[in-house]
């Protein structure tokens, strides 16, 4: 692949600082039929997440008599990218992302409370611009909170990467394509536990430490946005009647 200059005069191509997130907005409960749902716009990413359950685990052999099982399906709409028409449904990449996303939520949902059932999480990428797995996890986290399924924390995810010797936060599509490293992470904000960690490219330990620092710092802003999205409908209702 031809090399592309990603940093010009100390700025990124979209004008962001190295540790700056793209613009994020989250809406809770856009899908009426779901137990819980959320919609996120993260930069140019547009992603819907919905949760159904706990419900009877089907087929039956997938049920665990001692705890709920979490199932996750991450898919990308065929019109989601600027390039060719994609194929709908699951490819190998989607299967892997679905699996690691599922594991993030297995960590926080109180599974013991609903033995024999399944909790189904659907993440649908309507428009993609890099970092969809992180945005999808952040979104699904809000969908779960809105569903009332008990969790011990509300995870968020974001990625960091590297261009030359510079560590950058929240890579967009073009940065992802031409950067020297990409490392998405999901974090339980209360205890700073890492529940998703993937990386490819080249990083020194020092780069890693810088990346983690950026991820944790940006997490405070992301968590705040998640909470605001959940509170908004209730605060609005209260406001309407205070007048």
């Amino acid at each position: 692949m031809e090399k592309l200059e990603l940093l010009i005069n100390g700025k990124r191509l979209d004008g962001r600082a190295m540790d700056e997130l793209r613009k994020i907005s989250i809406t809770a409960s856009p899908i009426r039929n779901a137990t819980g749902s959320a919609y996120i716009e993260w930069g140019n990413n547009k992603i819907l997440a919905a949760v159904y359950g706990p419900r009877e685990a089907l087929p039956r052999h997938t049920a665990d008599p001692d705890r709920a099982v979490v199932k996750c399906r991450y898919t990308m709409a065929p019109f989601s990218s600027l390039e060719e028409h994609g194929r709908p449904g699951m490819n190998r990449r989607a299967i892997e992302i679905s699996k690691v996303t599922k594991e993030v939520f297995e960590n926080v949902i109180l599974l013991d409370l609903f033995p024999g059932t399944s909790i189904d999480i659907f993440v649908e990428v309507l428009q993609s611009d890099g970092g969809t797995r992180a945005a999808g996890i952040t979104c699904a986290s809000v969908a779960l909170a809105a569903s009332g399924i008990p969790m011990r924390d509300m995870p968020y995810a974001v990625s960091a990467g590297k261009v030359g010797e510079t560590v950058i936060l929240d890579l967009n599509k073009i940065e992802d394509n031409y950067s020297d490293a990409d490392m998405p992470m999901a974090i339980n904000p209360r205890n700073k536990e890492v529940t998703l960690l993937q990386m490819d490219g080249e990083l020194t330990k020092d780069h890693f430490k810088q990346a983690v620092e950026m991820i944790l710092k940006s997490g405070e802003a992301i968590t705040k946005l998640q909470k605001e999205a959940l509170r908004l409908p209730y605060e609005k209702a209260q406001e309407r009647y205070n007048r």
Binding site: S147, G148, P150
Partner: peptide, 21 residues
């Protein structure tokens, strides 16, 4: 730690679910 979204009253230590199963 709260496990749900709810209204917490620290005087009475009660947590009333807003979203709950």
């Amino acid at each position: 730690i709260s496990t749900i979204m709810g209204m917490y009253d620290d005087q009475t230590s009660s947590l009333i679910p807003i979203e709950g199963l």
